[in-house]
């Protein structure tokens, strides 16, 4: 019977150093996480550049997909941030594609989901949060902090509302990162658990968890897209808050 480690559903999240590198005492090895990040950005770039190589006026399948992705994000920015958001289009597009491909690639057997690590999602979320805050401060100066004083609140409630508003604002990167990380980790853990059941139940009982796993895979494809979408659209909304409401 297989050892306990092989049925450990959390084992799939372990980082393996493929090429150990150390610079200035800091470990910057090329790990499985890094590998799949590189694979993701390669695929994104290849997809987008090769599919529009023909620049056809009536697009074929791949070109339609690339145009669809472009317009999807462009519309999202235009609807949620407005015209000033056009400057941020490359960043938001990169963000969306990076998370989307990260989530999707994790569904390949024996691959690694780099978005299932809290440190990766925290870094992404913090970058977005700090970037947006800086944009807000640069744009509005010190009036930016008027954001924390909601309108229509009686003065007496202010000492209560201001800290709450600040906390709410600070909770944004936390919620962004936890949401993405938790979804990915929970989904993949469930799939691994049911896969373990398939092995345990063997030939006669194994078809039931196998069916569940098939359904889960389909569900996880949807979640992969959904979480990338939610992360991106929240970024747009937060950006809109900072740009417009001050």
């Amino acid at each position: 019977m297989a050892g306990a480690e092989q049925l450990n559903p959390l084992e799939q999240f372990e980082i393996h150093r493929l090429i150990p590198i150390e610079i200035g005492g800091v470990d910057v090895s090329f790990t499985n996480s890094s590998l799949w990040m590189v694979i993701a950005i390669t695929l994104v770039t290849l997809f987008l550049t090769l599919s529009v190589r023909r620049r056809a006026l009536v697009p074929g399948r791949w070109q339609s997909l690339a145009e669809l992705a472009y317009e999807f994000i462009a519309n999202m920015i235009r609807d949620n941030v407005g015209q000033e958001g056009r400057r941020f289009f490359p960043f938001i597009f990169t963000l969306f594609m990076f998370i989307l491909f990260g989530n999707m690639l994790g569904l390949i057997p024996y691959s690694f989901t780099y978005t299932s690590h809290i440190i990766v999602t925290v870094t992404l979320a913090l970058t977005v949060f700090l970037g947006i805050t800086i944009v807000g401060i640069v744009r509005h100066g010190l009036r930016f902090f008027a954001f924390f004083m909601p309108q229509g609140v009686p003065i007496a409630m202010m000492p209560l509302m201001i800290p709450i508003e600040i906390l709410s604002y600070l909770s944004r990167p936390v919620s962004l990162s936890i949401r993405l990380f938790a979804n990915m980790m929970a989904g993949h853990t469930m799939m691994k658990v049911f896969a373990g059941f398939v092995v345990i139940l063997g030939l006669f009982g194994g078809w039931a968890p196998l069916l569940v796993d098939v359904a889960l895979t389909g569900f996880e494809v949807l979640i992969a897209f959904l979480q990338a979408y939610v992360f991106t659209i929240l970024t747009c909304l937060y950006l809109n808050d900072t740009i417009h409401l001050h």
Binding site: L167, L170, S175, I178, V230, I233
Partner: peptide, 24 residues
Amino acid sequence: IAHRTGLGLAFRIGTELVSALIVG
């Protein structure tokens, strides 16, 4: 469409509450 999936919605609302608590 994105916000109507039951589990997705639950996750969103849950994480908003939990993350604010965590920060606090």
